[in-house]
Design a protein around this nucleic acid. Sequence first.
DNA 1: GAACAGAGTTCGTATATACGAACGTCAAAC
DNA 2: GTTTGACGTTCGTATATACGAACTCTGTTC
Lengths: 256, 256
Amino acid sequence: MIVKTVSNAFRIIEEISRRGELGVTEICQTLSLAKSSAHDLAETLLAEGVLEKNADTKRYSLGSRLIELGNRAQNQFDIVRLAHPFLLELSEKTEETVHLTVLDNDEVLYLDCVESRLRFRMTSIIGARCPLHCTGVGKAILAYLPETEQSRIIKEKGLHQYTKNTIHEESKMRDELRKIVKQGYAIDNMEHEDFLRCVSAPIFNFEGRVFASVSVSGLAERNTFKRLSSISKLVTETADNISRRLGYTGKPQPGH
Amino acid sequence: MIVKTVSNAFRIIEEISRRGELGVTEICQTLSLAKSSAHDLAETLLAEGVLEKNADTKRYSLGSRLIELGNRAQNQFDIVRLAHPFLLELSEKTEETVHLTVLDNDEVLYLDCVESRLRFRMTSIIGARCPLHCTGVGKAILAYLPETEQSRIIKEKGLHQYTKNTIHEESKMRDELRKIVKQGYAIDNMEHEDFLRCVSAPIFNFEGRVFASVSVSGLAERNTFKRLSSISKLVTETADNISRRLGYTGKPQPGH
DNA sequence: GAACAGAGTTCGTATATACGAACGTCAAAC
DNA sequence: GTTTGACGTTCGTATATACGAACTCTGTTC
């Protein structure tokens, strides 16, 4: 039995997290709630520290409690604790930014990041989601999923074109995924964002199922294909080491 | 009007975030809920992605949605976006780890961190909370609060002794706070954790009220008092720069 | 292998929540 | 300076939730 009260509370949090500060009226209109209900829910979330309230404008924004809980969640994901030292090492060796992502709801969720010293971080990418088909981390995972899963995800999510390089034809995507399995790593050649190239490799759990991936990314200018192919070895090594620490014993096998 | 349903949902999240994976029975016992209520709430949180459920053990743990929301919250705190470049610069110059904290519920909440390359991070401190009286970041804030607030906080929170260096007598704490105001920065000499020393300075908002602080911390061995006093200048400069970017115009003034 | 113990899940009813209307409150407009 | 309008807040009632008991499932004990 789903408790609608709780769902509505999270709909409010979600809406504020997307649009920033909101007042009671804006909340109840966009979510089709009674004004009084929106008010009571927001006040409860305020009391919980999940939202904050601007005393002047009486509008609500995200509160510090979420930072606290979000971080505890991140730390409870074993993969982050376990993988972080490997990410640090990879970033040291390549002098580029390294990401760790997991498969979550047919998307990649960014779990951890080690920044290259060369790039200022303005807002962290941790917690962000991206599609599978247009990112290195996503394609590395997609390639090793069972074919039925690949088909389902492509069918449901589509192959939205983000840049001129995005692979948006299903047949080409099939070729690409086969190529990835063959070489053991995926390359994102500005398929999601212009100017950005990355190499990524899949991480397998103890059952041999792909569920996460690691990547090295940087400016395309700096990261020629030649450089990427030399980096690819470090990336696959890192991913394999993490897989092994997770109890994976075999060789990466597609479709399991 | 507080909505108890929502509060209970967050009590469940909080409990799981503290104790890790829990089953329905453990939840309903520790929170004094009916088993059926705990079940319904947990299933709703599961559907929301806030919790995850181990299919074998049927126990619940924190979900990826919290990571997502937590990070959006962190990015929505203007101070983080604004201060981050300053933190990076401070970390570069000192080659030590730099933290940004805010005053929250009479504690310091760690909002951001730039790691020294010398130290592996296993679990991030971002999102953690610490008392004011035994940390550099806390004392830097406490010293600039109005005296009535200082007294209230000390009375309510006490001066719990974490290490042999923790200042746990109220009169000594008063002396310490006066000293901090006089020099403009606070030093934590292994008062919270052994082997760790840090220098911290307060950050003021446009009204001249202290609400955040920045610190440089590292191993006591490396950070002699002599080194700390030379670092202190960099820390206070950094804090002042951040304050100015926040619209603060005056000189740091205690008690306003 | 039956009985038991321990968990999670489902189901009918007393209490809490969601709703809509009415009420305050503030600021802009005239 | 009054009016207007938009917003947040409060209040009484129809619906949803919380409760406890009954049920199911799983694995363990005898």
